[in-house]
Design a protein around this nucleic acid. Structure first.
Lengths: 120, 120
DNA sequence: CGGAATCCAGATGGATACTG
DNA sequence: CAGTATCCATCTGGATTCCG
């Protein structure tokens, strides 16, 4: 039982990956990239996200300096989320992934069908 | 209580994202991209992955047509994992993310420190 | 409107032991 | 060597209720 070598676990790629590799972060990042949005607008835009997880995820994104949270003292209160420059640059490097997904989703489905066809 | 609109949940980006957004998939993909590797070599290369999860993840990658699994009937048996062309193309679109991580990990850490500093 | 708090089911994944 | 099988702790995230 030795302590795990921290080197690999702390490499930047892995840290960032651990950060964005959840069910909603990338989705929210791309949603906010379209245009600044308010809490419930985001909730409607990203189908299926619960209010709790939306709240949590936005807070993380804010903490990481990827989105800003602006509160307008209207009644009731208005809160708008927008990308920071850092968030925008991340979104840009993530964009090719969306395109790759569109282009290759069929190939993946075929591979799966083939794999499943050759039985248990 | 209405049925969730399947459209957004089934958009290609989301499907692919759900597929690769786990703790190890991207890491393993980039590891295999370096060179074809055997099971235990991968296990050593990717610090911290358990043998169960490594096995599972490789099976998924194979099913999705992203890696190949080649068995050589030596004794004991030798199994080598390698990227398919599809896997290689995904790895290439993921590569910029690794670079972005290296370039911006400090900015993220700063943002976090700033956020945490302004108290609970 | 934009959350916070609580509760809880199901998924994820680590440890361990065993096998062809 | 390359897994499979079990068991179990933790984490994720959904549902619900309540609040300024």
């Amino acid at each position: 039982m030795h302590a795990p070598d921290p080197y690999l676990a702390l490499c930047p790629t892995r840290v960032v990956l651990d950060r964005i590799a959840d069910k909603w972060t990338v989705l929210l990042l791309t949603a906010v990239a379209e245009r600044p949005m308010r809490f419930n607008a985001l909730r409607r835009r990203v189908e299926g996200v619960s209010q709790k997880v939306l709240s949590q995820t936005l807070k993380s994104l804010e903490r990481d300096g990827l989105v800003t949270r602006s509160v307008f003292p209207t009644v009731p209160v208005t809160v708008e989320y927008a990308l920071t420059p850092l968030g925008a640059s991340l979104e840009r490097t993530l964009a090719p992934l969306a395109q790759w997904s569109r282009e290759n989703i069929d190939a993946i489905a075929e591979a799966q069908a083939l794999y499943d066809a050759r039985g248990p």
